[in-house]
Deep mutational scan, measured.
Amino acid sequence: MGFKLLSKLLVYLTASIMAIASPLAFSVDSSGEYPTVSEIPVGEVRLYQIADGVWSHIATQSFDGAVYPSNGLIVRDGDELLLIDTAWGAKNTAALLAEIEKQIGLPVTRAVSTHFHDDRVGGVDVLRAAGVATYASPSTRRLAEVEGNEIPTHSLEGLSSSGDAVRFGPVELFYPGAAHSTDNLIVYVPSASVLYGGCAIYELSRTSAGNVADADLAEWPTSIERIQQHYPEAQFVIPGHGLPGGLDLLKHTTNVVKAHTNRSVVE
């Protein structure tokens, strides 16, 4: 069995187990497998329904001669939608809004960016022009300005110390501490036991640490421990890039980060 097929099978099995364990909360999309990078042309966006009122959005972007996937989250909030992270750029984010209108038909009224990198804030200006209120932590807003990236308009308070959590509509926002970046936030959907790890969490097929220019490698494993301790009931975990899975993604990420750190020390 090929690795790609095995990865998709694991996603399907995880979703099936969740649907059985929580039949009222989960209505997993039966329309197909989780979209992969090879299936999404740059400039297009796919939506994948995880649970009743919960979707991931998947886009792709060219970077350094390669094409990478990027995940975000959409959560229903009454007759409105909360968006977590842009679709990595203005063109993708405009396509995301169009796809949401086509498939869901509810307005996106608020959006949260989970850290300051372009795959999370690139497209904020498109959201703002569409009347979406954009939010991020003060740290993310400051770092985005320093980096020359787009800056969300509103500040999220109460997320300055490791372990801080605040309720934001249908989700809980959690600051686990520094990891992929010093400002990275985690998003949890309690009604569906869905954990969105953003770039602080890796997919299972990833074996290298990737972009760690703004990471705190020493603190990252401790931050992941905080996530595990705060959300032990999480059933569906979405990484910032690639295929979702279960809580095993947290341990896998820790292993990859520690291996990278150990290699760096040896070198």
Rank of each mutant, 00 (worst) to 15 (best):
N255I: 08
V11F: 08
W220A: 03
R206P: 04
A200Y: 04
D248C: 05
V124S: 12
D29W: 07
L83A: 10
I224Y: 00
L9V: 09
G198Q: 04
N262M: 13
D64W: 12
R167C: 05
W88A: 02
W55K: 00
L249T: 03
N184P: 01
R120I: 00
E101Q: 15
S205P: 14
T14Q: 09
G169L: 03
L156D: 01
Q103V: 13
S113A: 15
A234L: 15
A144F: 03
Q49E: 07
P221G: 13
S137N: 14
D183C: 00
A133D: 14
P176E: 00
Q235G: 07
V121K: 00
S155L: 08
I151N: 05
T253D: 01
G242E: 03
E157G: 14
A144G: 08
R46C: 06
T134K: 01
Y68Q: 13
A209K: 14
P23C: 06
V124I: 15
H117F: 00
V212L: 09
S22V: 07
I238K: 02
L243I: 15
G131H: 06
Y231I: 06
Y175H: 05
K258S: 13
L156A: 03
E80Y: 14
V108Y: 03
D214I: 15
D164E: 10
D29T: 10
P170M: 11
N71K: 02
T114Q: 00
V42S: 13
S31F: 05
S191G: 08
G242N: 03
A19I: 14
A94Q: 14
S155R: 11
V108D: 02
L9M: 06
F236C: 12
G43F: 12
V166R: 09
E147S: 14
S70A: 11
Y188H: 05
G78P: 04
S7N: 07
Q228F: 05
A19R: 07
I17N: 04
G210A: 14
S27N: 05
S155K: 10
S22P: 13
G169W: 03
S205T: 06
E267N: 05
I84M: 10
G89W: 02
H180D: 01
K258P: 04
T36Y: 09
A59Y: 04
G197Q: 01
A59V: 11
D85G: 00
L173R: 01
G158V: 06
R142V: 11
D79S: 13
N262W: 06
P244R: 04
S139D: 12
S223G: 05
V75I: 08
A51C: 09
A98C: 10
F168R: 02
T222V: 13
Y48G: 10
G53S: 11
G169R: 04
S264V: 15
P23N: 07
S22I: 13
I74C: 04
A144I: 14
T222L: 13
R141T: 07
L97R: 01
E150H: 15
E267M: 12
L47T: 14
S155A: 12
E99S: 14
Y188L: 02
V45D: 03
G2R: 06
L96P: 02
V112A: 05
S27Q: 14
N255Q: 05
E147H: 05
A209D: 08
E225S: 08
H241E: 00
S155N: 13
G2H: 10
R76Y: 12
G78D: 12
D125W: 09
Q103G: 13
R141H: 05
V265I: 10
A59G: 12
Y196R: 01
V108F: 02
F168H: 03
K4M: 05
A51D: 14
V108H: 02
W88E: 00
G210V: 13
F168S: 03
L10K: 06
F116E: 03
L5W: 13
A95K: 09
T14Y: 12
S30H: 13
A218T: 13
A94D: 11
W88F: 15
R120S: 14
F116K: 04
E225Y: 06
P23A: 09
N262I: 06
L249Q: 00
P107I: 08
V28A: 07
I58D: 03
F26C: 10
V171Q: 02
P152L: 03
P35Q: 11
Y231N: 04
L81Y: 01
T86L: 02
K102I: 15
W55D: 00
V187E: 02
L97W: 03
V112Q: 03
D52E: 08
F236P: 04
C199P: 01
K8D: 09
M18I: 06
L83Y: 01
T140V: 03
A19P: 05
R263N: 15
E101L: 14
V266M: 07
S22Q: 06
I227W: 03
S113N: 15
L156M: 10
V11A: 07
A19M: 15
V54W: 02
F116V: 03
A19V: 10
V75E: 02
K91P: 11
A95C: 10
V108Q: 01
S191K: 07
N255S: 09
G177A: 01
E33Q: 08
N92D: 03
R167L: 07
C199A: 00
A87Y: 00
Q61L: 08
P244D: 03
D29Y: 06
G43Q: 14
V189T: 04
D164Y: 09
D125N: 15
A218N: 11
F174H: 03
K258D: 08
S38V: 08
I74E: 03
L9I: 07
L6H: 09
D52P: 07
N211I: 14
S223Y: 02
L173P: 04
V11Q: 10
V37T: 09
G53Y: 05
I224N: 08
L127R: 01
E147P: 05
I20K: 08
V237N: 01
L217R: 13
I201N: 03
V189E: 06
H117E: 00
T93E: 00
L6G: 10
S7I: 10
Y202Q: 12
S208A: 12
L195C: 00
Y175L: 04
N71M: 01
L247I: 13
A87M: 00
G158F: 15
I238M: 12
A133S: 09
H115Q: 01
R128Y: 07
V171L: 06
S31D: 05
N211Y: 07
I201R: 02
P176R: 01
R142M: 12
S137D: 03
F174E: 00
A87F: 00
A51V: 08
E33Y: 07
L5V: 07
S155M: 10
H57P: 02
N262S: 11
G177D: 03
L159R: 02
T253Y: 02
A209I: 06
S223D: 02
A98L: 12
Q103W: 09
Y175N: 05
P232D: 13
D216K: 12
G123D: 04
I58S: 13
E145N: 10
W220F: 15
D248T: 10
R110G: 12
Y196V: 02
T222W: 14
G245K: 02
I74H: 00
S137T: 06
N92L: 06
N184E: 01
A129N: 05
T253E: 00
K4A: 05
L47I: 08
E145C: 12
E147T: 12
Y202W: 12
G78C: 07
G53T: 15
V171S: 03
L13G: 10
A234V: 08
D77T: 06
G53D: 13
Y68T: 09
H260R: 09
T153P: 04
G53A: 12
Y48E: 10
A95R: 12
N92Y: 04
N149I: 15
R263H: 05
S22N: 07
T261W: 13
K8A: 06
P35W: 08
L159E: 02
Y48A: 11
